[in-house]
Design a protein around this nucleic acid. Sequence first.
DNA 1: GCACCCGGTCACAGTTTGATGACACAACCC
DNA 2: GGGTTGTGTCATCAAACTGTGACCGGGTGC
Lengths: 204, 204
Amino acid sequence: MTRQGHSVTSYATGEEALDHIRARRPEIAILDVMLPGIDGVEVCRRIRKLDQLPVILLTARGDDLDVVVGLEAGADDYVVKPVEPRVLDARIRAILRRAESATSDRITFGDLVIDRGALKVTLASKEIHLTPTELRLLLELVRHPGQVLNRRYLLRVVWDHTHVADSRLVDACVQRVRAKIEPRPAEPVFIHTVRGFGYRFSPP
Amino acid sequence: MTRQGHSVTSYATGEEALDHIRARRPEIAILDVMLPGIDGVEVCRRIRKLDQLPVILLTARGDDLDVVVGLEAGADDYVVKPVEPRVLDARIRAILRRAESATSDRITFGDLVIDRGALKVTLASKEIHLTPTELRLLLELVRHPGQVLNRRYLLRVVWDHTHVADSRLVDACVQRVRAKIEPRPAEPVFIHTVRGFGYRFSPP
DNA sequence: GCACCCGGTCACAGTTTGATGACACAACCC
DNA sequence: GGGTTGTGTCATCAAACTGTGACCGGGTGC
């Protein structure tokens, strides 16, 4: 693992590991199930109570039941020893990739890239200039991909709720965003209108 | 998988699967690596270009290299056949838990899928367009499966209660919904008429 | 068998809804 | 101050939706 570019710290018991996880903030925990004291599955459960830290259970016990119990305990993967370092590394990467994308600032929908950290939007690698309101609207829609958000909600969240509920304000802003990010605004592929309800962001 | 509460659709080739993924918006894709035409790993790569859809590669080839290549292609897990359904289910849950995104509240009645978050209705994987009133009516019926809802109640809830109770309004709307979701509107399998009382939604 | 009631069906016009573009005003920046 | 940018509002238009009432047909009770 060290040779793969990871920095590794190991502990002999579950208690020890749990004690250090808070302080060290590792990217991932790899637990043996057979441990002195509390076993790996229980360690995994306790980690899950604390946070979303990715966990791999790595053990010699590969019964179906063990696997199911381990995964149900909140583990992201269950790997049976012996395992090639390269395979373990690939599995670690797969899990980290998934775990990162959840907290990542960048989201990609086909050609459209939304960088929530830098507050930048690019379409086909060309940067799109969005005004503050437009950006807030787009981010709000993207925060709930596939969900229909109604106008009242959008007015409350994107604008101050002090506005009259009955206005074409949301529509106008959606149009402006569409004009900028949709290849053909008349047939939008990102922001869809759901007549009578609101708008839905769903990637093409 | 169906018995575990999942709704499953399968395709014989990678091309076919890719074609349908956009329309069906599944929560997860489980791919065999050995496919006619483009192989599962390549399908996985193409899915990754589009979006974050969770992918499990499920295959008989369990060489270390295969596993590494599969995971590097963007798969979330690589499972070697044969596999116990319970184990696969546990792995699916672990990945969905981590992906977390695809937690839209969908209800499935055979071919009919109603997504209450996206406000989408699909029948046999084809999207059905319902008008706002039709959709509100269907959602209300679905909210009480197996129960008979009378016209006065439906008028009050789906429509403004300002309407006269004595009109063909509800009937007409039910007909319109039936025309769209019932394979044979004359012999409805979803929305049943209870003469003298109202309508009842009960899955076939 | 008959009258009657209830729900199915249909077409259409009036209404609602959202798209679009123009515009005025405010905020901001030199 | 003058230009520029951002934003809310409005008018207009096309498209979509929906209530209505008339008519039909089958089931129901007598």
